[in-house]
Write a protein that binds this DNA or RNA. Structure first.
Lengths: 174, 174
DNA sequence: TGCAATGTAAAACGATCGTTTTACATTGCG
DNA sequence: CGCAATGTAAAACGATCGTTTTACATTGCA
């Protein structure tokens, strides 16, 4: 495992657990086992490191939701929550913590959310046999809601979203 | 308008726009038009101020969703988003920024989410004519999802949640 | 062999953090 | 009148912030 990926992984974990602003560079260097000079050579700045974390997380997340049905989409979220925990959407959190004023971060968030919405549209089209933008928008809302309600209601929130999505899909088929 | 409520209002606005950790005490004193000594006499500490902001926001929010139907619940959210903007749930954000390690904040968040869930249960019971905990959980997820999807999709996210909730309610009636 | 790259450890940078203190002005009420 | 409460302005507190720098060790390759 090279320096960059070790740093990125450590940063993602600390940002997720304690928040972006609350995580100082010294805790990052300590967790990654590198000096501050090496950190800045690889990351450039704290904002750039956060953007890199988001880009890497987007890759991992999108790979996880490479599915063919809406039900599998929520099953993937159940897995994600079980493995990665549930502390809300790290993308929206980064945007909120920076007030949307850091361009590199705001752009990474926008790219992720666009890609996610497009993926949901594709899954809906595969599952339903035709495109249905209205249903896709509802599934996005359910997914986002499950992610955030899981913070205080745990995996039950994902189950509720999964059941609701099944009803909406059934209705769209009729 | 007395000192305390002016401070609380200014703090809520700054915390919401720029994030909790990113908002320094000097910006709070400047926005509230008070000295730092007065701020600490009234608020005690930054964490206590944040908890007070959350308690006040809970009062205002719960008053807004004092409704009798599920549809009115999402209509109220549309109003809220139009008036207060959409930067995600300030309760979950405060919890995330502090890592859940500040008791006064974690407690205020838990109280709010419990009260919200109970209120949704009451609205579902009124609208449906009987209790339906499963439907209530789904409405909570839709509401939470609308709140957070609205950050990047605007009021359309609330409309989508509203339509989805109508379908779920219709299905529960049959 | 020797240079360039890549790393560490640690000090230092000015800035800003949350909070307290000092010194003084204003006001309301017995 | 006089005291207690409540406010402001501003300096100071030590700590920590993100970032850069200095000085030195290790490694890979021509």
């Amino acid at each position: 495992m090279n320096v960059t990926s070790k740093l990125t992984a450590a940063a993602e974990r600390l940002f997720d657990r304690h928040g972006y602003m609350a995580t100082g560079m010294d805790r990052l260097t300590e967790a990654a086992g590198i000096s501050s000079r090496t950190l800045y050579k690889h990351a450039g700045s704290k904002a750039a490191l956060m953007a890199r974390v988001l880009t890497e997380r987007d890759r991992r997340f999108m790979a996880r939701i490479d599915v063919r049905t809406i039900d599998a989409l929520f099953a993937a979220l159940e897995d994600w929550v079980r493995v990665e925990g549930c502390r809300g959407c790290l993308f929206l959190r980064s945007r909120a913590e920076t007030g949307g004023d850091t361009p590199e971060i705001a752009e990474a968030v926008a790219l992720h959310k666009d890609a996610f919405h497009e993926r949901v549209g594709e899954v809906v089209a595969m599952d339903l046999g035709r495109e249905d933008p209205a249903l896709a928008a509802q599934v996005v809302v359910l997914f986002e809601g499950a992610t955030h309600a899981a913070v205080y209601r745990g995996a039950d929130a994902v189950s509720a979203a999964r059941a609701a999505a099944a009803v909406l899909l059934e209705r769209a088929r009729a």
